[in-house]
Amino acid sequence: MKLIGQVSRTFSRLVDTPLRELGLSVGQLPVLVTLKNVGAISQGELARIARVEQPSMAQLLSRMERDELVQRVLDPADGRSRLISLSAQATRQLPKAKRVMDQTCSQALDGLSADEQALLHELLLKVDANLNRALEQMQKGSK
């Protein structure tokens, strides 16, 4: 697990500068990608999908709104509520950010065969599922 953390930190360091040049950060990507894929959603639902605690999500969204990456729009189903959606600026920057991430992934996986890449992916999915089960059990135990 220590190695997974190390790999993640190194990857983040490599993409940090090119993403910052686009006005983005690694920590914003789960939110931006979720909004791109799902569309406008509530802050609570966004936090759940992106696996971010509600207070952290509120702070992150405030900064992203300030930086004009997201916007709050009226919920058509409930005029008293607002939904979070991508801004035009974020929509323009996401393809560039994807290129940065894809290029860095290619560097990270250089020298691995397609079979090795598939196996790595499969194994990481299992580790992620195990950790999510443990997290769910922990959360159930604290209620």
Results as ranks from 00 to 15, higher is better:
residue 1 M to R: 05
residue 1 M to H: 01
residue 1 M to N: 00
residue 2 K to A: 03
residue 2 K to E: 10
residue 3 L to A: 13
residue 4 I to K: 15
residue 6 Q to P: 05
residue 10 T to G: 12
residue 10 T to N: 13
residue 11 F to E: 10
residue 13 R to H: 09
residue 18 P to I: 06
residue 18 P to R: 02
residue 21 E to K: 02
residue 22 L to N: 13
residue 22 L to T: 08
residue 23 G to N: 12
residue 23 G to E: 15
residue 32 L to Y: 05
residue 33 V to M: 12
residue 35 L to W: 11
residue 39 G to P: 11
residue 39 G to F: 01
residue 46 L to E: 12
residue 49 I to L: 08
residue 49 I to T: 06
residue 50 A to V: 00
residue 51 R to V: 03
residue 53 E to C: 00
residue 55 P to V: 04
residue 57 M to K: 02
residue 57 M to T: 06
residue 58 A to D: 07
residue 59 Q to M: 10
residue 61 L to C: 12
residue 62 S to D: 10
residue 62 S to C: 05
residue 63 R to E: 12
residue 67 D to I: 03
residue 68 E to Q: 14
residue 70 V to A: 06
residue 74 L to R: 12
residue 77 A to M: 07
residue 78 D to W: 13
residue 78 D to Y: 05
residue 78 D to L: 10
residue 79 G to N: 06
residue 80 R to V: 07
residue 80 R to Y: 02
residue 93 Q to L: 08
residue 98 K to P: 09
residue 98 K to C: 11
residue 103 Q to A: 06
residue 104 T to S: 12
residue 106 S to F: 15
residue 108 A to K: 10
residue 110 D to P: 12
residue 112 L to R: 01
residue 113 S to Y: 04
residue 115 D to G: 01
residue 118 A to C: 11
residue 119 L to D: 11
residue 122 E to A: 14
residue 124 L to S: 07
residue 125 L to A: 13
residue 127 V to C: 11
residue 131 L to E: 06
residue 133 R to C: 01
residue 135 L to V: 07
residue 137 Q to E: 13
residue 139 Q to I: 09
residue 143 K to F: 10
